[in-house]
Design a protein around this nucleic acid. Structure first.
Lengths: 213, 213
DNA sequence: CCCACAATCCCATATATATGTGATATTCAC
DNA sequence: GTGAATATCACATATATATGGGATTGTGGG
C-alpha cells in the first residue's frame, strides 16, 4: 500500500527536506516535486498522486489558485497546505478553495507524516496556531441567540422567515395561508419584541443575531 | 517550571490513565483529578491550575457548562476538552463556551502532552476529525461574495449598509448627507443589480451573501 | 373557573417605499 | 473628446408598510 505524494514548494532546500523526510518513511512514494504548479494538470493526469503538498507562496500561480485548479479537476485527492505565515485570510481562502489541512512549516519535521495520514483518513489536520485563528474568527460572530431570547412565538418566526425571503405582506399571507391583517398583527408583535420599527431593521437584526437563517 | 494540571473526567479508568501519563511526564504536576465539576469554584481558587482537562460527558454538570463556569471566573486558564464523540454541536458549544482545544480520547495517549503544551502556548490543538467538522461547517456557509460580484458602486453599498441598519430613506439621506431622491435612485439601482424588488429581499440577500456585514 | 397568551381577523390612516421618467456634472477609459 | 458609468437631484404616483384601535377563539396554568 503505497501513498503517492506530489509536492509543490518553491523553496529548494525545504523541498529537498520534504523529499528526504518522506523517502525515509515507509509507504510513501514521491511521484514529483516541483517549484511551481504551472504544469499542474499534466502532473495530475500522469503522476497519479494520492495526496498533494502545496506551498501557499508559490511563484507564477500561488498555492490558493493551485488548489482551485486541483479542485476543478478532482475533489478526491486531499491537499495539505504548507506555509510560514499564520494569516487569517490566507487560511480562509485556502479552505474555501478546497484544501484539507494546513501545516505551519516549522512543524513539518515533527508532524508532516502524521498530517498526511490524517488527510488520507478524511481529517483536517492543522497546526494549533492555525486552528486558533479559525476558532477566533468563529467566536467573533458570537454565540447564536435563539428566537426564544426575544419570546417570539412559532407563528411570529414563520412570518419573520417569510418576510426575510423578500415576501411582501400579501405574499406572506398567501405563504402561510392567513389573512393580510393577521400578518400585520404578527409583524407588529415581532417589532415590539425585537424593539425595532421597520422591516429592514427587523430582518437585519434577525439575520445578524441568528434568529433565522 | 511546573505545569499544574486539573482534571475532570468521570471515567475512572481513563482518569487514572491521564494521571499516570502526566505523572510520568517531567514538568507536569497534577493538582487534582475529579469525576465531576460540582466543586469547580473551590478547586479553581485553591489548586491554582495552569491548565484544565475537561471531559464533555460529565455527570451533574456537563463539560460545556463546566467551561462556562470556569470562564465566568477566569479567562486566562486554558481548557482542553476531551471527548469520545466528534459531534458538531458539542464542538461548537464548547468553543463558544470558551474551550481552547478539543482532543478525541483515542488520541490521548499519543497527543495529550503535545496538546497541553499547545494550549499553554496560546494555540488551539484539535484532532483532525474535529477540525474537519469545523471546516465543513464553515465551508457550508459558502465563500463570501463581494459587492463587486454584483457591480455595486461604493455609494450604492453605503446606502445598502445604512438601510440594513434599519434606517428609513429619510434617515439614510441624512446619514449620507444627500437628498431623499438620490437615496431612491441608488436603491433603485441596487435592486436592479441584486435582482430584487423589495427592501427586505435586498437586505437579506446582502447579509446572507456577505455583501455587507 | 378565570386569566394570560397565542393566533386569527377587521378597520383606518399617515408615512414610506417601489418605480417610472428625466436631468446635470464628473470622471475615466478609449 | 466622445461615450459609458457614477453621483447627484427632481417630480409623480400606485402600493406597501407602520401603527393605532378593537374583536374572537382556543389553550394551558394557577
Amino acid at each position: 500500500m503505497n501513498v503517492n505524494v506530489l509536492i509543490y514548494e518553491d523553496n529548494e532546500s525545504l523541498r529537498n527536506s520534504l523529499v528526504a523526510l518522506l523517502s525515509r518513511e515507509k509507504g510513501f512514494h514521491i511521484v514529483g516535486d516541483y517549484s511551481d504548479c504551472t504544469d499542474l494538470e499534466n502532473h495530475l493526469f500522469h503522476l497519479h498522486p494520492n495526496v498533494i503538498l502545496m506551498d501557499i507562496d508559490l511563484p507564477e500561480i500561488n498555492g490558493i489558485d493551485g488548489v482551485k485548479k486541483i479542485r476543478a479537476i478532482t475533489t478526491t485527492i486531499p491537499v495539505l497546505m504548507l506555509t510560514v505565515f499564520d494569516d487569517t485570510s490566507s487560511v480562509y481562502d485556502a479552505l474555501y478553495a478546497g484544501a484539507n489541512g494546513y501545516l505551519l512549516k516549522k512543524y513539518v519535521s515533527t508532524r508532516l507524516v502524521t498530517s498526511i495520514n490524517d488527510v488520507l483518513e478524511g481529517g483536517s489536520p492543522m497546526s494549533p496556531a492555525i486552528a486558533r485563528l479559525i476558532i477566533d474568527s468563529i467566536k467573533q460572530k458570537g454565540p447564536k441567540k435563539t428566537a426564544l431570547d426575544y419570546n417570539l412565538t412559532a407563528r411570529e418566526i414563520d412570518v419573520l422567515v417569510s418576510l426575510a425571503k423578500g415576501n411582501s405582506y400579501k405574499m406572506v399571507a398567501d405563504d402561510l395561508t392567513i389573512s393580510l391583517d393577521t400578518v400585520r398583527t404578527h409583524i407588529k408583535h415581532v417589532y415590539e419584541k425585537l424593539h425595532v420599527q421597520s422591516q429592514g431593521e427587523a430582518i437585519s437584526k434577525a439575520l445578524r443575531e441568528g434568529l433565522i437563517k
